[in-house]
Design a protein around this nucleic acid. Sequence first.
DNA 1: CTGAAAGCGCTTACAG
DNA 2: CTGAAAGCGCTTACAG
Lengths: 337, 337
Amino acid sequence: MATIKDVAREAGVSVGTVSKVISRDATVKPALRERVLKAIATLGYRPNLAARALRTNTVNVIGLVVPDISNPFFAALAKRIEAEAAKYAHSVMLANSDDDPEAEARQIAALLGQLPKGLIIVGAETKAVKTVKSDVPIVSVDRRYGAYPLIATNHETASALQADHLVALGHRRIGYISGPDTTEVGRLRKQGFYGRIMQLSDPGDPVRLIIREGSFDYTSGELLARAMLELPPDERPTAIAAASDQQAIGALRLARDMGIEVPARLSIAGFDNIDLAKLVVPRLTSVAQRIEEIAVLAVQRILNPGQTGTKPADVLVGADLVARGSSGPAPNAKAPG
Amino acid sequence: MATIKDVAREAGVSVGTVSKVISRDATVKPALRERVLKAIATLGYRPNLAARALRTNTVNVIGLVVPDISNPFFAALAKRIEAEAAKYAHSVMLANSDDDPEAEARQIAALLGQLPKGLIIVGAETKAVKTVKSDVPIVSVDRRYGAYPLIATNHETASALQADHLVALGHRRIGYISGPDTTEVGRLRKQGFYGRIMQLSDPGDPVRLIIREGSFDYTSGELLARAMLELPPDERPTAIAAASDQQAIGALRLARDMGIEVPARLSIAGFDNIDLAKLVVPRLTSVAQRIEEIAVLAVQRILNPGQTGTKPADVLVGADLVARGSSGPAPNAKAPG
DNA sequence: CTGAAAGCGCTTACAG
DNA sequence: CTGAAAGCGCTTACAG
């Protein structure tokens, strides 16, 4: 490959001048600039980023570590982060931790070796306290990594949207299928839902809540919905909220297998608004996270870290309920108005 | 950050010796090695990869360009490539081209500047001839980039599996929902399906085939399935194959809306075996690509490019039909045996 | 406004 | 077996 020296020779200038042209230094005279640009084009010159990095001690790269890129949420996040970084001429270096703290530590070390501008990390699920020797800004996204500041959806208020929606529709016997208590997201979503239900429950017209804990997957949704729907008719919930769309879709399918009409006899609301939510029958009411906003905030944090010394705060981002066909008025609810 | 010099001073050796310890050069005496390793640990030393890259003219990185990381197929591919590269202590640098040839060119230039070991590119859809000045191996995956060798599923034989399956179940009136003729994958899948049907069609017991072209999405599947299922009963297909699972799921939903039982009255087979295929009712018969195999082959190509000068050949990978509940014997077919 | 030169942190022949 | 030193391709004060 051609080097800056080759370009300098071709253009009949010094390497310093070539460097200035590349960095858009305004002090180069137009005539010289033209000659240099022509030489660059002729030789197909591409700057050696390693040399530049060695000199400047950084490189236009943001490292991104996710537990599993084939999880649609993390894939969407990666895409948005990549797009946002590209606006500032930065590349994204992606690493998968497989939700394994050791793999995560290895990936982080490898990324830091590249002298990136910073790291965006979706933490692997663990109780271990993690820290890393590093001069560059690090921000956690979605799930906290170590003690680094977190940018994430406010899962509590987001889940509260589900509660608002179902109670507003007149439901007073509600089931909640939670995620594992071992995960922070599982706990937060459950607390948010539970807390709001408690707020809304009027002593004269109380809401009865059944909570069952499971994993975030489809099968859990099926199993826990079954446990709720096999209760005697007067204890059976008229609405089920779930901590994930997978669970909600499991519940949806179970309802269908049991011959329970959705939403006429049972309302269902999920969380995450995955693509599939629009494809199931009926379409699934769900809570959409603002992935774009999270991505933008994370990249800003890396590229404009603000004053050193000031410990940056967490940012919790709002979410939006998307009402679709799977939720409707409670069977015995009075018509609104 | 500590440099190799700091480590050398701390251990009381020369930087050359430290370098040898790091590169596992066996000629360093155990006693010295220990001192060096201890110094490295004490200082939290991490080699500066930019300096190493400048010296060795390469870095343990494989660049990966995909049209859209939020497409589950590309996400799965990226994950497998990352895992495979990690086995050889290589990182993967991911870039999204958004299926835009210009963005793709920019991303490739940026990646090459990092001096990666090679590039794995899923080409953006375009007719333009693309080449790039580069010393490193480049391989296309799934969709060809420029004139570089391609590693991909053999879409023709893969689609032929759908034809085999449906004909073996006794279907003789079959619909095919194709992808866009403007995409290579769309054309290949259609040709593979059509060609196999022609082979299997016996003059005494001919197969009638209806082909409709659409885009790969859900809505196309719904629309084109409707066009086929609204035909008079004796022309209506008893089975529909689609070029994507999205289309197949659209067809599945339409059949349900029209009150046509699947698979009793209509068999449906998709292509890609997306996660959703296991979640719809009934579960969708589909063709699974061997993503792992493709990932392994692509990484091998980059890390062991073989003799220079020998133009490496394309590799077409087989696929597997996964039979599930959405396909069954044709309504009027004799029982097997 | 332009050029000459130092130096970033490594690796690698080479000398001893 | 170990160390001294050159040099990878840039950027950036500095001199002119």
